[in-house]
């Protein structure tokens, strides 16, 4: 590399090919999770801020219920931070529905400047990366990142009517009914966002929309590997390497792919999709959906960061970027993963 490009790299806050380094280290000031009943009954139930008693929330459609969960998550995050809507410069949000309407309806309600994202189930990390860039560049002082998914809205859009008598194969994943919101700011206490590795699409040639974990696992492995190559960090620099919603099948594939690259993660690898439900809850391979990594991060993992259980973790959210049209036309499913490094104040120095 030439001296010029080396100097440019230092100035442009880039590390290696795909990683961004944030100098002002935006903090996650507050995070909130609003979940449905099934998620509340799962093993992580105690970590969520609000557990709804039914999937419809008294609304007239699942779609309205999903939007309401996202709006509530935003309000709870603000309340926990002692902030008001007026303190937020931008809402960065996404979900799984066509034209991300769950998010834009929340933006309509909150009346915030709004950037909508679609990264399927990777949207949380994508939103945090975009938010951190805006904060680090001085374009914002506080941003709200919100994502949601709902089992029933996803079923009726991507698969079958909810009352359809279908038998899921063992690779199927249950879409999480949950919304998560994160308030990020350049001033304020909370775990810092220090690095973001923006993923490339990796297409493993999977065509089966009921085997998304396998479709996303190679993308997760590629982004994690790239993160370590770009930053010079090693897996044991992190207390936990989190993947979004690979579930049991995808997690095993990702672990094996990383092991082939010489990275034995073992207990350090944690998958939100394998953790939010108990196997007895009838979810086949595990969970999926934007709300999966969102609820597990804003609830369980944030709790771990705030209580000192984790001092540094890598949050790698994974997405399958397909639609009913593309799989019916026989196209393969592109996978993507974005990674965010989160560190507490007392994390060991580099």
């Amino acid at each position: 590399m030439s001296t010029v490009s080396r100097a440019l790299e230092a100035r442009t806050r880039r590390m290696g090919k795909q990683t961004l380094r944030f100098r002002l280290t935006p903090a996650v000031v507050a995070a909130a999770a609003v979940v449905g009943p099934k998620e509340g009954q799962g093993p992580l139930g105690e970590y969520f801020d609000i557990i709804k008693q039914d999937d419809l929330l008294g609304e007239k459609s699942w779609e309205r219920a999903e939007s309401r969960m996202m709006a509530e998550a935003c309000r709870v995050a603000l309340r926990k931070a002692g902030a008001a809507l007026g303190d937020v410069d931008y809402l960065i949000a996404g979900d799984l529905l066509n034209q991300i309407t769950s998010s834009s309806f929340v933006a309509r309600e909150l009346k915030l400047p709004f950037l909508g994202l679609f990264g399927a189930c990777s949207t949380l990390a994508e939103g945090m990366a975009v938010g951190a860039m805006m904060l680090d560049a001085g374009y914002a002082r506080a941003v709200l990142v919100a994502v949601s998914s709902h089992h029933c809205t996803a079923e009726r859009q991507y698969r079958y009517p909810t009352e359809f008598a279908t038998q899921p194969p063992p690779t199927a994943q249950w879409t999480v009914t949950a919304a998560g919101a994160i308030l990020m700011a350049t001033k304020g206490d909370g775990p810092a966002v220090t690095l973001a590795t923006v993923g490339r699409i990796v297409d493993a040639g999977i065509k089966d929309p009921l085997n998304l974990g396998a479709a996303m696992a190679p993308a997760a492995a590629a982004t994690i590997r790239q993160h370590f190559e770009d930053t010079g960090r090693r897996p044991d620099d992190y207390d936990l390497i989190v993947t979004g919603d690979l579930a049991n099948v995808g997690k095993e594939i990702a672990a094996e792919l990383l092991s082939r690259e010489g990275m034995e993660l073992e207990d350090r690898l944690f998958d939100c999709g394998s953790s939010i439900y108990d196997p007895s809850q009838g979810v086949e391979a595990g969970a999926s959906g934007c709300g999966c990594s969102a609820a597990v991060f804003t609830g369980y993992l944030m709790h771990g960061l705030l209580t000192g259980r984790y001092r540094r973790l890598l949050l790698t959210c994974t997405g399958a970027l397909f639609s009913p049209t593309t799989y019916q036309q026989g196209e393969t499913i592109p996978g993507i993963a974005h990674a965010i490094a989160l560190e507490t104040q007392d994390a060991p120095g580099q």
Binding site: Y160, E163, F164, A165, Q167
Partner: peptide, 27 residues
């Protein structure tokens, strides 16, 4: 019943009825 029975629930004409009634309700 379909989650357990698979085609055992879907192939009988009751499953055909399910295939018609479930989208009617859903949409």
């Amino acid at each position: 019943i379909g989650r357990q029975g698979g085609m055992g629930a879907f192939l009988p004409i009751t499953g055909f009825a399910n295939a018609i009634v479930s989208p009617a309700m859903e949409f």
